[in-house]
Amino acid sequence: MLSSVAERVYWLGRYLERAENSARLLKIYSAMLFDLPRGSKLDWSTLIDISGSHERYKEHHTSYDEKAVVNFLLGDSKNRNSIFECLVLARENARTSREIIPSEIWEQVNALYYTVKESINPRLGRANRYTLLEEIMAKSQRIEGLFVSSMSHNEAYSFIELGRKLERADMTSRLVDVGSINLFPAFAEKTEHQIIEPYENIIWINVLRCLGGFQAYRQQVHNRVSGNLVVRFLLQDEEFPRAIGFCLSDLAQNLGKLPRNEDVKRAVGRVKRITHEVDVESLLEKGLLEFIDELQISIADIHDEISRIWFTPVNIQNAG
């Protein structure tokens, strides 16, 4: 397949996944904030942290109130990671890949784009927002289902899946980050230890819910929810589709179907090592910051290798 097409459908996978993840995150996060005591360090600004667009946000806003943050993440054209902007790009990539993706997928991507375009407005209330986020998630899942069941599982499909799983692994790593470091210092200073406990659990439960993995965790881990077990589950589990371990083995599987894959496989192997060799207990004590940085850089390396091997024309001319 054409390098340029491979690149387009890879990004199609990434943007669709990013939009769905953001919707998921916004929905669960809103619900969780209502459970936390006032003065919690976990507030709306954390969402901006997770989406990795703090600089951008600060250019246009001074405060972190609910409306401003939600609008920024949902439909702001100044935020290229907003759900709407992701869908604009996903639609553009789908539109320019119509010769290779089934037309019903294009129609559904197009429909999702219009759903969001026609519903976002700065005065969107909480109830309507909830409905919209649910709809984005449902329609995204329909699209994912169509890919699985109506598209040939060919090379183009593998590139879509690479994009999707890489994006997903990245998102899960961000959520692991939120679940741990942001909260502890703030609560340790302000409150008694026994008060922290129930909230600590609430946060981890919500992280799991955000990934749709609460039940899976319960079934697989057979234990009460606790930080180190959740982190291990999200990093290493190979059965739950939103755990990084699962994403990595899925990446490896799709890589197997593509030519000249050695360097990318090696990059995936490095991430696998990082997630498996980590000592979760001591990590949670000293904070995850460094570890998450290392993890995210190694995930980004996979992208760089994919791009170098398959998308860059210079490389191809050398190979030819």
Partner: peptide
């Protein structure tokens, strides 16, 4: 004439 593909030209 060749096209640039993921496998080369």
């Amino acid at each position: 004439v060749f096209m640039k593909t993921i496998e080369g030209l």
